[in-house]
Every structure is written in structure tokens, then in C-alpha cells.
Design a protein around this nucleic acid. Structure first.
Lengths: 148, 148
DNA sequence: TATTCAATAGACTTGTAAATCCATTGAAAT
DNA sequence: ATTTCAATGGATTTACAAGTCTATTGAATA
């Protein structure tokens, strides 16, 4: 869908990291394998996550990436911003330089609603939600397969 | 933002066409100028709109593009489909081949909500909405500038 | 019929996000 | 100290969407 590959990879990588059993730092290569992201490309994305303060990196023996911030404090929008995506930078869909509520292009009202839904999602969803909902599913599956 | 340039152009072109004073067919070049879409590229997009049955084209003298269907019957999703965009074709954001409600990837629940908002918008917004809301704005402005 | 206009078709070029490659840095272990 | 491991930086390549160019088709006008 709509977000560019880099942003999608970033979400995927963060999700992959938080879902992993956290017994020490997770290596870029392992995460790459797990998430099927080209490993060298992933490295660059992970650097951005480090710079944004979401994770920290350890070089050398036993190195890799570790979560640094509470998941609750990392919103989807933060991850997107860290990859360079910013809704505010997006040009008017109709191509106007100065499109706004006061000076709306023909698509403005309609497009605005889409942006609002997107923002509603991106600002109100955190990586904690990702983890929680993933847990719920795993538990359900466990209950099923364990025969209760 | 997220939709590719071609899809955005398609929305822009349709909006440009319906907002134009409809005194006969609108030429591709005129529409291109109005919407600031590269004219030859626009031609290709307009062809898709013709094939989808939204508009018809007239060649030669006095030719151009005309609306064919009632605006109410053209949803945003239809325009997007006509340009080749299909939400159902979008691969799992986590990269899984078989990701579904029954077999959800770690991002599935969260991503699903985004898709639902998007679909809600794309399926429930028509070009009639685009026209109506544009009209409302124009009238408001008229009332202001006419000094009432 | 000849001329002009405008869409159509398809080959070709451009721009840039995505992906790869390789050399370097820095940390841990022995 | 030396070796090994893994992240980092930056140059380069690839792939493909976006955009351009040119020739053709087909309709209206006179």
C-alpha cells in the first residue's frame, strides 16, 4: 500500500524486534532474516531508529540492537518521522502551492478526511499496541492448540 | 503522501474535469494546464478513465473528454482501481505470504485498522462529494466577497 | 476531398527509491 | 595484543515509476 518501502520496513523491523525473545541484543542479520528485509538495507534503517532514540546499538562480539524506550512511548508516527516521512511535507494532491482550509483546492475537503484518518491512526497507535495485540493472538492460539 | 503519483493524478484529473464549466468536451491539454499534470502523461491516465467508463473521449475538432457516468456512481475506490491500485493486492506489511485474520503477522491487527480507515474513505466518497464540497466553498467565498 | 485538430499507441528516456558492495570503526573475548 | 564479530559510512548499481517524444488514427470543418 501507500507508505514507501523504507517506512514499511521500519515498522516491520521494529515489530520484529519487539516480538523477539529479548535475551540480549538482536543482530541485524538475524532481524533481517526474520523480517526478510535485505540486510544491508535494514542496517541503514536501524541506524535511523538508533538516531531517533528508540533502540541502541552495540558493536562487536555479542552486539546488535536493543530497545531503549518504553514501547508505549513509541508511536507509529514517530517511527515514520524517523524514516523521513512527514504528512506535513506532503504536497497538495491537486498540486496547489498554497492549499489550505482557507484556500482549498477542489480535492481539499475529501483529501483532508483521509489525512485525518491516517493521522488518527498514526498518532494513537504505539508499539505497545503492536505487542499487546500480537500477544493476544498468540495466547488464543495457545489455548486452542493446548486443547482447552 | 501514500498513493502513487499516477493514482493521485487520476483523482486530480477527475476533480479538474468535474469542476470545469462543462461547455463541451475538455481538451487534454487544457486539463493538463489546469491541473499541472504533464500533458502526455495525463493522456495515458485519461485513457484509463475512458476504459473504466467514467468519461468518454472525442477525437478531432472540438474533441476532448466528457463525463459519462453520474458523479454519484464514481467512488474514489473506482478511480483508484482504474489506475491499477488495489488494496487487496497489497502485500502484507510484515512480508508474510499468507497473512490473514487467522494467521496474523505481528503487525496485522494494527495495519488492518489503517486499511479499514482507508477503505472506509475510498468506498464511501464519490466524485459527487468532491463537487458538492467544492461548491460549498465557492458559495461561501461568493457570499463573503459579495459583501453580504 | 483536403485540412486541421485532438486523442491514441508505443518506444524511449529520466529520476530516484531501493538495494548492493566494500572498506572502516569499535567493542568483546581469548 | 590479536582476533573475531557486528555495526557504520559511503560509493555504486539496479529496478521501475514517471515522464517525454514521435508517429498514427480518426473525427469535424470547410
Amino acid at each position: 500500500m501507500f507508505l514507501n518501502q523504507t517506512s514499511q520496513y521500519a515498522l516491520r523491523a521494529m515489530a520484529g524486534l519487539i516480538v523477539a525473545d529479548q535475551t540480549g541484543p538482536l543482530k541485524s542479520k538475524e532481524l533481517a532474516k526474520k523480517t526478510e528485509i535485505p540486510s544491508h538495507y535494514l542496517s541503514k534503517i536501524m541506524r535511523k531508529m538508533v538516531e531517533a532514540g528508540f533502540i541502541e546499538s552495540k558493536k562487536g562480539h555479542g552486539g546488535g540492537f536493543l530497545l531503549k524506550k518504553p514501547l508505549k512511548q513509541i508511536r507509529i508516527i514517530d517511527v515514520l518521522h524517523a524514516t523521513g516521512f512527514d504528512m506535513e511535507d506532503q504536497p497538495c494532491v491537486f498540486g496547489w502551492d498554497q492549499c489550505s482550509d482557507c484556500n482549498p483546492c477542489p480535492l481539499h475537503p475529501v483529501w483532508k478526511r483521509l489525512k485525518e484518518s491516517f493521522n488518527d491512526w498514526a498518532f494513537n497507535t504505539t508499539l505497545e499496541d503492536v505487542r499487546r495485540e500480537n500477544r493476544l493472538v498468540s495466547e488464543e492460539r495457545f489455548n486452542l492448540t493446548s486443547g482447552r
